[in-house]
């Protein structure tokens, strides 16, 4: 299971996203995709590890408004024991516009994978779970 927390930040007019994935699972997928050892979060970490994550994100995580994908800014990652956290920012996000989110992270390799998303807007939290047969959600 992965957990993605998305929160609209009024001050920066941006959508701030933190995504929590099992470190082993993400590493496994990056290695399969790139065919090299990645060693996430170790001294031996592949120097392009962040690029690998970006390119995987670019094909598995989309936020669309008005029929166009919004550009994602990869802010960074953090590795904390079992989990890898990925931080993404979507600038010029419009809160009131209908949004389509697609999150198929890891699903191509782990068919049991579920991706939970919490979208926080003020006090309101909208939660939903995406999985193999259902990778997108409109909100």
């Amino acid at each position: 299971m992965s957990i993605t927390d998305m929160e609209y930040n009024e001050a920066s007019k941006s959508l701030q996203i933190s995504m929590k994935l099992f470190a082993d699972d993400l590493e496994f997928v990056l290695e399969k995709e790139q065919n090299v050892k990645v060693f996430l979060g170790t001294e031996k970490e592949h120097e392009k590890a962040d690029d690998f994550i970006k390119s995987y994100l670019n094909t598995h995580f989309f936020i669309e408004q008005s029929k166009g994908s919004l550009p994602l800014t990869y802010v960074g990652k953090e590795i904390d024991k079992d989990y890898t956290w990925i931080y993404i920012e979507v600038k010029n996000f419009k809160v009131k516009v209908e949004t389509l989110l697609t999150n198929s992270m890891l699903i191509d390799y782990f068919k049991d994978q579920t991706n939970k998303v919490n979208y926080k807007k003020g006090d309101e939290v909208n939660s939903f779970t995406l999985y193999n047969q259902n990778i997108s959600k409109e909100f």
Partner: peptide, 11 residues
């Protein structure tokens, strides 16, 4: 503070 904000602060 959200995790995102903490990370930005740390960065």
């Amino acid at each position: 503070p959200s995790r995102f904000e903490l990370f930005q602060q740390k960065e």
